[in-house]
Deep mutational scan, measured.
Amino acid sequence: KRPMNAFMVWSRGQRRKMALENPKMHNSEISKRLGADWKLLTDAEKRPFIDEAKRLRAVHMKEYPDYK
């Protein structure tokens, strides 16, 4: 299984929150909104998620060195 990218790290928490706030919203609509919201974030706002994704990638490479 591939490590999560920055968007996936960020959206994991946001998806739960949005689903709780909008229980009747379909998952596909939540995904569209999350994508739009992510694009509106500044680089500074994205930085912690980018850093976490880099950390996850490094751990994955160490655990699965032959993964392609």
Score class of each variant (00 low, 15 high):
residue 26 H to L: 14
residue 25 M to Q: 05
residue 58 A to G: 14
residue 25 M to R: 00
residue 61 M to C: 13
residue 61 M to L: 12
residue 12 R to V: 15
residue 56 L to M: 14
residue 16 R to E: 15
residue 27 N to C: 09
residue 47 R to L: 10
residue 3 P to I: 07
residue 61 M to V: 13
residue 45 E to Q: 10
residue 2 R to S: 14
residue 47 R to Y: 01
residue 11 S to G: 03
residue 67 Y to F: 11
residue 18 M to T: 00
residue 65 P to Y: 11
residue 29 E to Y: 00
residue 5 N to Y: 02
residue 16 R to A: 14
residue 61 M to H: 12
residue 17 K to A: 07
residue 22 N to V: 04
residue 62 K to W: 05
residue 57 R to W: 08
residue 60 H to R: 10
residue 8 M to Y: 07
residue 64 Y to P: 11
residue 33 R to C: 06
residue 33 R to Y: 02
residue 62 K to F: 06
residue 48 P to V: 01
residue 67 Y to D: 06
residue 16 R to N: 14
residue 22 N to T: 04
residue 3 P to S: 12
residue 9 V to Y: 02
residue 20 L to K: 08
residue 11 S to Q: 11
residue 19 A to Q: 14
residue 54 K to Y: 03
residue 13 G to M: 14
residue 14 Q to H: 09
residue 46 K to T: 02
residue 20 L to C: 08
residue 26 H to V: 10
residue 35 G to E: 14
residue 31 S to F: 07
residue 51 D to L: 08
residue 40 L to H: 05
residue 11 S to P: 01
residue 5 N to C: 11
residue 58 A to Y: 06
residue 57 R to H: 08
residue 54 K to R: 11
residue 37 D to P: 03
residue 48 P to Y: 09
residue 13 G to F: 14
residue 56 L to P: 03
residue 66 D to I: 03
residue 58 A to H: 15
residue 34 L to W: 00
residue 60 H to G: 14
residue 57 R to T: 14
residue 17 K to Q: 08
residue 12 R to A: 15
residue 59 V to N: 15
residue 9 V to I: 13
residue 5 N to S: 13
residue 66 D to T: 09
residue 51 D to S: 05
residue 1 K to R: 05
residue 5 N to K: 04
residue 16 R to I: 10
residue 39 K to A: 11
residue 66 D to S: 10
residue 39 K to I: 01
residue 49 F to R: 01
residue 27 N to T: 10
residue 44 A to R: 06
residue 55 R to L: 09
residue 14 Q to N: 08
residue 8 M to S: 08
residue 4 M to N: 06
residue 17 K to Y: 07
residue 17 K to R: 10
residue 46 K to G: 00
residue 13 G to R: 01
residue 40 L to P: 00
residue 41 L to A: 02
residue 16 R to D: 15
residue 44 A to W: 06
residue 54 K to A: 12
residue 38 W to I: 05
residue 63 E to H: 14
residue 67 Y to K: 15
residue 3 P to F: 05
residue 4 M to G: 09
residue 62 K to G: 11
residue 18 M to C: 04
residue 44 A to C: 05
residue 17 K to I: 13
residue 53 A to I: 00
residue 37 D to T: 12
residue 26 H to W: 05
residue 59 V to L: 13
residue 22 N to I: 00
residue 24 K to A: 07
residue 44 A to Y: 06
residue 9 V to P: 00
residue 33 R to I: 09
residue 49 F to T: 02
residue 57 R to K: 13
residue 42 T to D: 08
residue 18 M to V: 07
residue 51 D to P: 00
residue 12 R to T: 15
residue 1 K to D: 11
residue 43 D to G: 04
residue 12 R to G: 12
residue 47 R to H: 05
residue 64 Y to L: 14
residue 22 N to R: 00
residue 22 N to M: 05
residue 46 K to P: 01
residue 55 R to T: 10
residue 50 I to V: 10
residue 61 M to A: 13
residue 44 A to F: 05
residue 62 K to N: 09
residue 19 A to G: 06
residue 8 M to K: 06
residue 6 A to V: 05
residue 20 L to Q: 15
residue 43 D to H: 09
residue 65 P to M: 14
residue 42 T to S: 13
residue 50 I to L: 08
residue 49 F to A: 05
residue 22 N to D: 12
residue 53 A to R: 00
residue 22 N to G: 02
residue 55 R to A: 15
residue 59 V to D: 05
residue 40 L to M: 12
residue 24 K to G: 11
residue 42 T to W: 00
residue 24 K to Y: 00
residue 60 H to D: 13
residue 59 V to Q: 10
residue 50 I to Q: 12
residue 42 T to K: 04
residue 55 R to Y: 04
residue 50 I to F: 13
residue 38 W to A: 04
residue 58 A to M: 11
residue 57 R to N: 15
residue 46 K to M: 04
residue 13 G to E: 15
residue 26 H to P: 12
residue 26 H to S: 15
residue 49 F to D: 01
residue 46 K to E: 03
residue 5 N to R: 02
residue 3 P to R: 08
residue 26 H to C: 13
residue 29 E to S: 04
residue 16 R to C: 08
residue 40 L to Q: 13
residue 25 M to G: 03
residue 61 M to R: 12
residue 11 S to R: 01
residue 43 D to A: 08
residue 46 K to L: 00
residue 25 M to D: 04
residue 17 K to N: 08
residue 54 K to I: 07
residue 40 L to I: 06
residue 40 L to F: 04
residue 60 H to L: 08
residue 65 P to H: 11
residue 14 Q to G: 01
residue 11 S to L: 04
residue 58 A to I: 06
residue 25 M to Y: 00
residue 37 D to L: 08
residue 61 M to N: 12
residue 42 T to V: 02
residue 59 V to P: 11
residue 28 S to M: 03
residue 46 K to C: 02
residue 57 R to D: 14
residue 27 N to S: 12
residue 48 P to E: 01
residue 5 N to P: 00
residue 48 P to M: 00
residue 42 T to L: 01
residue 62 K to H: 11
residue 11 S to T: 04
residue 54 K to P: 04
residue 30 I to M: 10
residue 3 P to G: 10
residue 10 W to C: 12
residue 55 R to H: 09
residue 4 M to Y: 09
residue 29 E to L: 06
residue 34 L to V: 07
residue 28 S to T: 12
residue 11 S to I: 05
residue 10 W to P: 07
residue 10 W to T: 04
residue 41 L to S: 00
residue 24 K to Q: 09
residue 4 M to F: 02
residue 38 W to G: 03
residue 41 L to N: 00
residue 55 R to K: 11
residue 14 Q to S: 06
residue 4 M to W: 07
residue 28 S to G: 10
residue 48 P to N: 00
